[in-house]
């Protein structure tokens, strides 16, 4: 039996992380991952159930210097509709556009998407491309502690990450991309959005004078964790974007992806799609 002993809906971050320091807390935000997982028995509730939606300052999108900061409780709908994101990081809006359904987008938080640590997490992909970092807060020695972890280093295995159970993810931060940044996100499936990605590919970098620099490539559902495709990045970095480099990138995508067979697709199809999408996205960038 899942025996919940207390329920909390803290208003302040301090309250929240203090409770987490005491141990065995299950956090929920939109509940769109937690509910199906607890209902099916895949996950069990801890002694304390904590609703983080009421914590002040935990949601919202803001400019902070040359960075953009997105609160962990910000919903996918908010990202999809935000003018700043549309201007500065359209790749993130694009992923939000192809995320679940309206109802799910209205509930689903970015923090939840990241903490759920699914290789298919659709918001993770563009955030990797944007080289985002996450802020983790905890309570220790009578004070609020925070640390920042690059998203790339956050995931350690299937549904596993470096966040300790007493830490709350509070925000996602990334530098505003330069004006010559181009980024594209592509997700598979005949449905526009309500589809767990069979494969997703995100590619971004600075493109000037036909040369691609600071290239970052992310792939979803082709490895145990959301993947930075370093092989593809190397194939493109510092090179002119042309048919040759695209061909090399596609070959590298094939090597970077190590998918498995499951009910949604075979490994063959996933590899096939990764190559198709890599080529498609790069051709798109080239066309622009």
């Amino acid at each position: 039996m899942q025996e919940i002993k207390s329920y909390l809906a803290p208003r302040s971050l301090d309250e929240a992380v203090k409770a987490m320091a005491a141990g065995d807390v299950t956090v929920f935000c939109g509940g769109t991952d937690l509910t199906p997982q607890t209902d099916s028995g895949a996950k069990r509730y801890g002694a304390t159930l904590m609703n983080i939606r009421r914590i002040e300052g935990l949601s919202g999108i803001a400019e902070a210097g040359d960075s953009i900061r997105i609160g962990a409780a910000t919903t996918v709908t908010e990202v999809r509709r935000d003018p700043l994101i549309a201007r500065a990081a359209p790749i993130l809006a694009e992923a939000a556009e192809h995320f679940a359904s309206d109802q799910i987008r209205n509930a689903a938080s970015l923090g939840g998407n990241i903490c759920n640590a699914s290789p298919a997490g659709d918001m993770i992909n563009p955030l990797l491309v944007l080289d985002a970092a996450v802020e983790l807060a905890s309570w220790a020695d009578g004070a609020l502690r925070t640390r920042s972890v690059p998203l790339e280093n956050f995931f350690t295995g299937p549904r596993r990450h470096v966040k300790r159970p007493d830490e709350l993810l509070t925000a996602i931060v990334f530098r505003k991309p330069a004006t010559d940044f181009v980024g594209w996100f592509r997700k598979s499936g005949p449905r526009p959005a309500l589809e767990i990605s069979t494969v997703s590919v995100g590619i971004g970098g600075n493109l000037s004078d036909g040369v691609f620099r600071n290239v970052r490539v992310a792939m979803g559902s082709v490895a145990p964790t959301p993947l930075r495709a370093h092989g593809v990045e190397a194939a493109l970095e510092g090179r002119p974007l042309d048919a040759d480099s695209i061909r090399a990138a596609v070959a590298a995508a094939d090597a970077d992806a190590t998918p498995i067979d499951d009910v949604r697709a075979s490994a063959w199809y996933r590899k096939h799609l990764v190559k198709v999408f890599t080529e498609e996205v790069l051709n798109h960038v080239l066309g622009n």
């Binding site: 499936g189 005949p190 075979s266 199809y269 096939h272």
Partner: peptide, 9 residues
């Protein structure tokens, strides 16, 4: 999609 892609491949 996968079946069609395989057949075309």
């Amino acid at each position: 999609p996968e079946k069609v892609a395989r057949a075309i491949d």
